[in-house]
Amino acid sequence: MHFAYGQQRKGSQPSPYAIRSRPYWLRVRRGPGQLIALIVGCVFTFWLVSRWTGSSSSERIPPGTPPVVLVTTIDPDYKESFVKILTKNRKDYAAKHGYATFFPSTQDYPLDEAPRSWARVPAIRHAMTEFPHSTYFFHLDAHALIANYDLSVEEHIMNKDRLEKIMIVNIPVVPPDSVIKTFAHLKGDRIDLVLTQDKDGLSQNSMIIRRGEWAKYFLDAWFDPLYRSYNFQKAEGHALEHIVQWHGTILAKLALVEQNIMNSYIKGSGKNAAKDGTYSNGHFIVNFGDCDKGSRSCETEMDPFLEKVKKHRRSDDE
């Protein structure tokens, strides 16, 4: 077993990368069967993954769905002309932005002896049933008008960045000295309820609710018969203040904004506006407060505003 002298010999230095024979399972020659198996495996994996991710995808919203629904409850005791003013105001505004309107009667709901103002709570729930794909439900009291048609709900208030900018954080939920304060670090897109606060407390006369499971929870909890029968002095208003302060899951979804954003009180409204909460030109909403009390008349007070809005619209159209 001697080799010739000049024979090419194996070098003694290892090659820079150790050559390893391929492992057993790689050495098997690939036939067409294996290729097919490989493809089937890929397809199966893709199907699995798409199923997992697909289940969590958000719901499909049909085209043409109004993004915002305006909800105002109408008391059967209102004068017809007054109702006309209200509905026309909302409808005009809705038409401009492609929103929908919803005007249920306060008698439509089982209030069980509770004051009629409670009807707004099931009314919003009702609107969510009627418009199951709309995103925001804007409840406006019958004593308030939309004064500036140019502002849209999404851009003016609900846009994430905008909302983060305008929400007032870390203030007592119920002024002046509630120990419960609004959360300081809420994300705008996590907010499901936008409210204002006047000098005396929360105002439920102008509020925006995002549709969803939380909204159902909030409205149903608010409408609980025990609250309705409790004789809160301000009925649903106090019940609202109560649940917001006692239940963290509600407070965590709440954003308070300045009154002048969406609930400006007109001078002499009979309510105590917060700082900068009195109506001036350009504000989105004008609230006439207790305009049905005493010698006041909501209709006559609202008239000039309608004129102004009309003029504004006409100049818009021309």
């Binding site: 939380w214 609980d224 409790y230 109560h242």
Partner: peptide
């Protein structure tokens, strides 16, 4: 679940408790 959070939160309420 978030639902459970809400239920546990609303389960005890002073107004309900006071009346019932």
């Amino acid at each position: 679940s978030v639902w459970t959070d809400r239920l546990l939160d609303i389960w005890w309420d002073p107004v309900g408790y006071e009346q019932k």
